[in-house]
Design a protein around this nucleic acid. Sequence first.
DNA 1: GCGCATCGTCGAAGCGCTTCTATTAAATAC
DNA 2: GTATTTAATAGAAGCGCTTCGACGATGCGC
Lengths: 345, 345
Amino acid sequence: MPTMADVAKLANVALSTVSYAINGTRPISEETRQRIFAAMEELGYQPNALARGLASKRSRILALLFPAPERGLGITELEFVTAAADAAKENDYNLILWSSELKKIDELRELTQQGLVDGVVAMEVHLHDKRIEMLREADFPFSMIGRCAESDGIDYVDIDFDQVVREAVDYLKELGHTRIAFVNHSQAEYDAEYGPAVRAEAAFAAAVKDAGLPNLVRRCRAAPPAGYEAFGSLLSEDPSITALITMNERAIPGIMLGISEKGWSIPDDFSLVAIVSSARAAEMVMPALTTMEPPSAKMGRVGVELLIRKLESGDQDTAKILLPCRLVIRGSTGPCRRPPEGAHG
Amino acid sequence: MPTMADVAKLANVALSTVSYAINGTRPISEETRQRIFAAMEELGYQPNALARGLASKRSRILALLFPAPERGLGITELEFVTAAADAAKENDYNLILWSSELKKIDELRELTQQGLVDGVVAMEVHLHDKRIEMLREADFPFSMIGRCAESDGIDYVDIDFDQVVREAVDYLKELGHTRIAFVNHSQAEYDAEYGPAVRAEAAFAAAVKDAGLPNLVRRCRAAPPAGYEAFGSLLSEDPSITALITMNERAIPGIMLGISEKGWSIPDDFSLVAIVSSARAAEMVMPALTTMEPPSAKMGRVGVELLIRKLESGDQDTAKILLPCRLVIRGSTGPCRRPPEGAHG
DNA sequence: GCGCATCGTCGAAGCGCTTCTATTAAATAC
DNA sequence: GTATTTAATAGAAGCGCTTCGACGATGCGC
């Protein structure tokens, strides 16, 4: 493997000159530059990333922090990862995967102290997230996909849960639904203050309140039987429910089973909206689900770009980006045909 | 950030002695070791990964090569990635994601020449894969999740497609099905010689031949409408088909639509088996799909472990590991109730 | 009790870069 | 025309580690 010294010798310049030519750190005459690049070409030279990182104190490596949650990672999360990797590559960075457990902050701290990565992107952020606290205290560069409770001074990109839930509720209301239920992630996720679980539920409460509708909510493990149970429990609280919004993809089959056992069909008797849900999952069921589709790839990409921006410009002001989900109407929603008891119609 | 020199000074030993203590490269007296570790503790010392890598010529960084296929990555692939990251971490390695396009081999070559990674794990391998050829020619350490046509001397872990397909066919045959169709990945994937597409189809041909059954096959894009079409086309070739095996997850909703439009219900009139398909997807549809479930996490893990073994032992013999899929019977399969025309019964 | 291996440690030479300071030649100022 | 920049390059000092060769101090055989 040729080194910079080899290039310098062949091009008949000093080693430092080669470095300047490569990095553009100092002006180099056109003629010299040509000679240097020709020599690099001839030798098939590639700068050594480790040496470069050691000398410059910038490895151009980023880490993506993704804990494996109880609920399991889905297509949405996969898209964060691939988009993040792409964005990193486009900016000449490498992306390392750190599958950090939420509890093992010491492990994370050690990793950040090894000088391997210039900064980290945190995924699956909780409202009070030890990882975030640690990074902040250590003054280690990072950005978030998601956000915590106290996000002052931290760059993040997150889903605008208020918009998402409100748009879903409004859409169903326009279809005539007035008894709309919400099936959240699990109680455990809620207790752990997983951002989406807390924010979406709060947003739902606000949205139905503003719309003058009842707040019908269940938390539910990520499994069909749990969805079935949650649906039954909702119906026993209010049998006139005609529509349901959920963020809990894996509960959906159970919910649909409950609906069909009632003798109802989708969308004629019951409407279903999956929020923050990928087309992949939505198209697996019949009828295909109307969704509020998250900009997953964009989030992964922006998460990385925010971090790089902070790394490269001394620029201290923080970017807080909330992205909307897009309503994609498929076959699981339709006009309300069962007006609530006591209503006229 | 404290350096090794700081530790050495505090422990009153030479810098090299600290290094030996940390790496166990040379014997160190128990007393000295204690003093050194105490000093490290006191200073909160963490070795610098870049410096260590530069000096030792081993970065302890691996790269996972995952091209984004036309068909889109699924849960199975996500599990490769997370399991690979976990396995790497357990062995004190870091895992970088390289979302390499299959064509850009030069890009890959450059990456391998930067000295950043010690080896790579290739995913989504094709029978004649340029990436593999390049790695082999460059004598760069690697392992495969999947395998190419000529795998001599290369470590890999792959699914045993013969076992998978044969077990699925046998299972259906035992249920009395004698007209079994196979829906493969797309023609494009087949033409690109994507390993699973080629191997599963060949395995199906062999299995039905041995069983004395007709070879009913369609290639099909990864989308419900394509699945619908493929199903229709299969039925017009042989209307007495009563069971179908597919590896094409995303075509399934279309296939199921076709079945229900025929007035058939699953599993009473028609059986469906999804091979190399995750529980996640299988449980999204109703009835839940009987699957041949891939050992995704194990594959990701073993892919990494094979590479590490090769890296750390000079050991030259290669490991070729074929893993079976596990038959998980859910609601989409049952006894054959529509015997083929011309058959007695 | 002398030679010889072994143990534990040290000092120094890199690993392949970046970057600081120095140097020379040409350009500009007045 | 001399002083002063500026442009272009060179040389050298690190970055924080691993590893080689050396060396004194033990332990052992016979």
